[in-house]
Design a protein around this nucleic acid. Structure first.
Lengths: 182, 182
DNA sequence: TTGATAACCGGAGACAGTCTCCGTATCGTT
DNA sequence: AACGATACGGAGACTGTCTCCGGTTATCAA
């Protein structure tokens, strides 16, 4: 990769990170290009689809995800509190940008999506927590981890789209937790 | 209302119903106008926002909703099956058009939305079922009906956006049901 | 250093969707 | 028939997506 190309690449990612934080994942890409000081052509060559850009932004995000799963597993307390904490963290992780919950949850099962690998990391982190509880015999025996991602992702999606605050999300997560535990 | 105005109004609603069924609630409104054989101006005068058009389409839908709630309450069987059946029906009701679950669930709590009253009917139908179970003492005591709508709406939303079939939705609803019952 | 060349840039503009404005046409009434 | 009120419709402004290609720049070999 040529030096100037890399420079532009980085500036675009930085500009996107900024604008997406302000306006969510649906912000105008031409506006991103403008902020990065490049033409639209340059942006679309590096990132043919919006999701390629989101993918680049989520690069550092993966560490946060695995860290969060580690912390959840290290939790000292009963299974219910552990799972509830993890779900709250899960929601927080995918809700950092407006439009994130829907985008990430949909990409979870879509092999065509450029952010699929990132979502796999999230799904993997979730699986670690779920499997741990399953081994303890604390879980219903028929739960699939992808289902869990969709359930929690669904709650995060409505919360995101209805501008609910975390206080309103918690009781919904409690219902899911109670439904999952034996 | 002038005769020609009413005629156009009806043609637009009919065209919209048709196109939305084919392409979902995000279909082009100019295309709706074209199919109805009117100019865009005419469409936007009758329906300033997309949701006004959706509102008109949902007119007949309200009957289906109350009917479904009646049927659910007339169900002979245990509480779990009753609630599960109702939730499946709820999902079906809001999933008739692509994009429906998200739109309806969001409008549920938005006083500005033109389809709010329609959503109230749905929320009311759900409340009847929930209250009946609450009176039977079958429910956790802290459940709010709006929360239930959001939970089930969230599941329907992810299912809609990920093109899941009802088979995949059922187990998720079961988790919610089990989390809600005592 | 210089020149060749492959890689890259950027912006004009095609395209699609939303929505408005206003000159024109139609309705309903007197 | 004539008039005022009402409604029509399409040109076009605006926004966002995405492409194409003439011009520029980095890189490297000589």
């Amino acid at each position: 990769m040529r030096a100037d190309a890399k420079r532009n690449y980085d500036r675009i990612v930085e500009a996107a990170r900024e604008l997406f934080r302000e306006q969510g994942y649906d912000a105008s890409l031409d506006e991103v290009a403008k902020r990065a000081g490049v033409g639209p052509g340059t942006l679309y060559r590096h990132f043919p689809k919006r999701e390629n850009l989101i993918d680049a932004i989520l690069q550092s995000w993966m560490d946060k995800v695995t860290d969060a799963a580690d912390k959840a597993l290290a939790f000292e307390g009963d299974d219910r509190a552990l799972l509830l904490n993890w779900f709250e963290e899960y929601v927080r992780l995918i809700s950092q940008h407006k439009g994130g919950p829907a985008k990430i949850t949909r990409a979870m099962g879509d092999p065509e999506s450029p952010i699929m690998t990132k979502c796999q990391v999230l799904a993997g982190a979730n699986a670690r927590v779920i499997d741990r509880l399953r081994e303890d015999g604390a879980l219903r025996d028929d739960v699939e981890t992808l289902q869990v991602c969709r359930l929690v992702g669904g709650i995060a999606t409505v919360a995101d789209q209805s501008d609910l605050d975390p206080t309103a999300v918690r009781p919904m997560l409690e219902v899911v937790v109670d439904g999952l535990l034996t």
